[in-house]
Nucleic acid binder design. Sequence first.
DNA 1: CGGAACGTTGAGGAGAATCAATTATAGTGG
DNA 2: CCACTATAATTGATTCTCCTCAACGTTCCG
Lengths: 252, 252
Amino acid sequence: MTFSNMSALQLFLRRLTARSRLTREEQEAVLGLKSHAAQVPAHVDFVEIGEHVDHACLIADGLAGRFEQVRDGRRQITALHIAGDMADLPSVVSPKVGWALAALTTTTILRVPHAELRRVAVAYPALAEAFWRDCVVDSSIFSEWVVNVGRRDAKSRLAHLLCEMALRIEQTGSGDRSLFKLALSQADLADVLGLTSVHVNRTLQRLRIGGMASMAAGSVTISNWDELVRVADFDETYLLLDGQAPRLLDAA
Amino acid sequence: MTFSNMSALQLFLRRLTARSRLTREEQEAVLGLKSHAAQVPAHVDFVEIGEHVDHACLIADGLAGRFEQVRDGRRQITALHIAGDMADLPSVVSPKVGWALAALTTTTILRVPHAELRRVAVAYPALAEAFWRDCVVDSSIFSEWVVNVGRRDAKSRLAHLLCEMALRIEQTGSGDRSLFKLALSQADLADVLGLTSVHVNRTLQRLRIGGMASMAAGSVTISNWDELVRVADFDETYLLLDGQAPRLLDAA
DNA sequence: CGGAACGTTGAGGAGAATCAATTATAGTGG
DNA sequence: CCACTATAATTGATTCTCCTCAACGTTCCG
């Protein structure tokens, strides 16, 4: 079986097991989660801001963003979710969400009822722990994004995002860091980076001319990884990809 | 165990029970956590970047910041922690931390061994859930900070931070939103907001002249809350202060 | 009293925003 | 297959926040 035809739940399990040690039985429980799939066209919300949700959304295919509004209508994308991400896992413990989730390209999602996630979390405490850890990973990414928009200029900021997405997509097995799909318009990219689309356009040109990376037709090509990392001031530690943490149960 | 230890744990418990319903026995377990206190002078790290920690740090008194470095030496504070915050609770499930924790003013911390937190989390799944939820709260704040530095100008950004800290401190019961302690230099404030200290200084003046808020001698005075909220575009939803979520155990 | 940290002010410059066109690109229906 | 349209990418000119650099004032404390 190749990664490309793995089911969405298998991708999610892969994300969990990258950081949490799970028994076969626990893994089966994840794969046995009941859910129903839905197609979401680009630019359509599948979770509304302020909604009280009773399910979490697993991205099966495509790309989704977490949107927050500012009064004057401008918006910020605070997270990008790729296949295998349970986009609103935090909603299991905090059902009223303060953000919207929208598809950035045509996206397939799996709606997994909270009741299902609760069921396996209660039956298998190690899964509750894995979910908790998964939320910590996303939190760590948020924190790095604060640094990124707070303290890096446009070129470095954009380079940093490309490095992050390269590694995250590579981790899922659905791409290589030198060439991967990222169907993100320059306007959406601007909302991720806290810039304007005009400036994103000019900054992309600088990365292209510098021989580091280019984006076209929904794909990113990274031609000089080391230089991109240097410009980005990128340190992958925050992605927490360095192995499985010890289980609470075993250690207690 | 000294009295100040007890009261710090009580503050932490208060933070937990604001969002999680806990039985008396579970509450006792929190208050019974073993720990040892330490005094940290201003500007001293008590957790080093990249460290593999075996304990979490509960802020008993004072103010701490989570610092991340950028290559050229500039830094960003990605979180502020007040009394009652377990500053690195995520480290329980992910012990290698990618940030430093430093005191911003003279601060008392309680080092709580992971073993202790694991013990109560395993014995009382509802506590594991409360810890998970607590991490989600911090995550929600990170996310809002991304919006703040990404899409708000200096005046709005600073106003937003003041609103947030006002409510968080009010929640602990150790201050009022119209007057509270926040011993933060303008340089540190700049590192929180992704600005320079010079610009923070000028922006504070604008808030003062506008009759909204002023900072002096380590205290914040908010003289026109409604106007400050308006300028900040502040919506407190993200602080998740609107009551206790249902317990997973009861619902499953 | 003297130094160190912090706060304040001014002048000039740089990065990003804004405004406004123009040019691809992709999809749609005739 | 070609107009027709909407969306996305690109470019140029101008403006404005915010940064940088440098100096000076203030507070606090040994």
